[in-house]
Design a binder for these strands. Structure first.
Lengths: 341, 341
DNA sequence: GTGAAAGCGCTAACAC
DNA sequence: GTGTTAGCGCTTTCAC
């Protein structure tokens, strides 16, 4: 890796400036020099140093991405979409899986700053004073994707979680259900998870249903927690007729718990998920789910961040709300009137 | 982001060297200077430039990772494990999802080189002359993870795919099966997929079973292709009693096809997967599968690459073979003697 | 059109 | 123990 721009210049018999010009596709280079430089680059197998270039340009084409869980169907799909769009815009992704570890998140945010990334995308909704202070003072364009930013002044690309949850309940009610259980995400922070929960409650209230607190439980959005919460739910003497899980992964965990206990889903109990990730189509019965526009979310996130990077002054709408959509599959049935339960 | 080492030095009333020494935790700094520098760093909110440091040190702490599909259960889990280990060793991950696009892979490999990454991990088994030439000439430590490298001189962290497939067949035979179908990965390249396939054939032959070519099909390791291949299999007049899929994702696709056609799995037809990824435990019936040590594979990959980076001269064993293990779940039943089929 | 030279922010001889 | 200074490999005025 010893060959540098100077070597190319010597080989081609021109100045480093000319080589640089060729490298950057500028005009004001004669056909003759262009040819000689290209030949020298080829012969020397020259690969320009992005590091040196970044130092000079004060721009790295790097975007740092913080994912809570790479193995989640939801996040890996957003990430995949972000990656696709990033490639298109000439960015490279520095990715960090923080596994719910706020300290690791802060550590990585600082590394991103040292790396002088051009922008940061965060998909994690937990927060802390240090984290808040970082996003407020770093000077780096930061965007929250799929979750609401802890500071309302920062831009978030999300769906209207409140409305989506509210409408999910309306759908369930329209099917005749009134005994509705809820398995939510973590409630410790004021973000998407909370809007979802509030939407759920509001939906119930809107239809004159008093929430049964024993049927309201919280997991961590992942498969095992859905299973655990469902298991506890089934130990109750009174059962709901439908379970609303705030993520498809939790819905799958719940589904497996039900199936393994011999319950017929959806005949004996219905189930509805949230996210519309791949797994909803994969399990049997396929999950009816409130779908987020996952890939679009990734694309819009990167494009918006790109805007923020290119026009530092220009204001961007704080919340970019994308549209959700209920997708009916097999896990949710109208409540049959002859149900004993 | 204007504050640099010089500013810190001025503020603390010392030389830049001293600041650099503090930054790098060297000794030969008096307690007094240490204090003053730390105070200045704090007050100025100084964040050292990793870019400038990399340029000087000729080391970036960056590792480029090429993943064929971020949304795959198998690859996202390896990636997650690589990430975890990378954090431990102080590396950052530049990730690229190449979506089976060889041109994109080559493009990214060149970007990795321009970025001066310290090493590269590739999890894609397709190859081309240009790609081969790159890995042979780049001068960057490169390691293949979970797939066999196209050039035998490069190190691969893998299982013994041939043996694993062979033993899978032995297991099936021990259950009484002899009508065994196979859904493999892509056969266009001489890598893991091929060893799996050869192991399968050898297993059959070893037990005096003549392979039925109509029951041998190839997909692309992903869910939809498992479904497609299964669908065609079911259109045949003669059916196998068990299907061996070379990835869990394809097995899930096949499973859904069977289930959706009203087949009872495993009573009417058994199914066995390969990989041991999360999804095998998630579907119902849960998939019996030949399990790869996925997380260990990621960990060993990064640790080996780290070794290669630290000791450039030292030879590393070309193939690091990890152990596989058959995990019995619900999708595979002994062939009942009273089967009509 | 082309080139010389300054400088991006840091580290590491080397001198004191 | 501490500071001066020469680069790391590139881009970009500015002068020719």
């Amino acid at each position: 890796m010893a060959v540098k721009i100077k070597d190319v210049a010597q080989r081609a018999g021109v100045s480093v400036t000319s080589v640089s010009r060729v490298l950057n596709g500028e005009k004001y280079v004669s056909e003759d020099i262009l040819q000689r430089v290209q030949k020298a680059i080829e012969e020397l197998q020259y690969s320009p140093s992005h590091i040196a270039r970044s130092l000079k340009r004060q721009k790295t084409d790097l975007i740092g991405v913080i994912v809570p869980d790479l193995t989640s169907n939801f996040y890996s799909t957003i990430l995949s979409s972000i990656e696709e769009t990033a490639t298109y815009y000439g960015y490279n992704l520095l990715v960090c899986n923080i596994a719910e570890d706020l300290e690791k998140e802060l550590k990585y945010l600082n590394i991103f700053r040292e790396m002088r990334v051009d922008g940061i995308i965060i998909m994690h909704e937990k927060s802390s004073p240090e984290l808040l202070s970082f996003i407020q003072n770093s000077g780096i364009p930061i965007l929250y994707s799929s979750v609401k930013s802890p500071d309302p002044d920062f831009v978030s690309v999300i769906i209207d979680d409140y409305q989506a949850a509210f409408q999910t309940v309306e759908y369930l009610v329209s099917l005749g259900h009134s005994r509705i259980a809820y398995i939510g995400g973590d409630m410790r922070d004021i973000t998407s998870g909370q809007y979802r929960y509030e939407g759920f409650r509001a939906g119930l209230l809107r239809h004159g249903i008093t929430p049964n607190e024993a049927w309201i439980r919280f997991g961590d959005y992942k498969i095992p927690s859905g299973r655990e919460q469902m298991s506890e739910l089934l130990q109750l003497s009174e059962w709901p007729t439908v379970v609303f899980a705030a993520s498809d992964d939790m819905a799958v965990g719940a589904l497996n718990c039900m199936l393994d206990q011999g319950l017929d889903v959806p005949k004996e109990m219905s189930l509805i998920g949230f996210d519309g990730s791949i797994i909803a189509e994969v399990v049997r019965p396929a999950l009816t789910s409130m779908q987020q526009p996952i890939r679009e979310m990734g694309k819009v996130s990167l494009e918006t961040l790109h805007e923020m990077i290119m026009r530092p002054g220009k204001a961007v709408r704080k919340d970019l709300i994308l549209s959700h959509q209920l997708v009916e599959r097999e896990s949710c049935l109208p409540l049959s009137t002859n149900k004993t339960n």
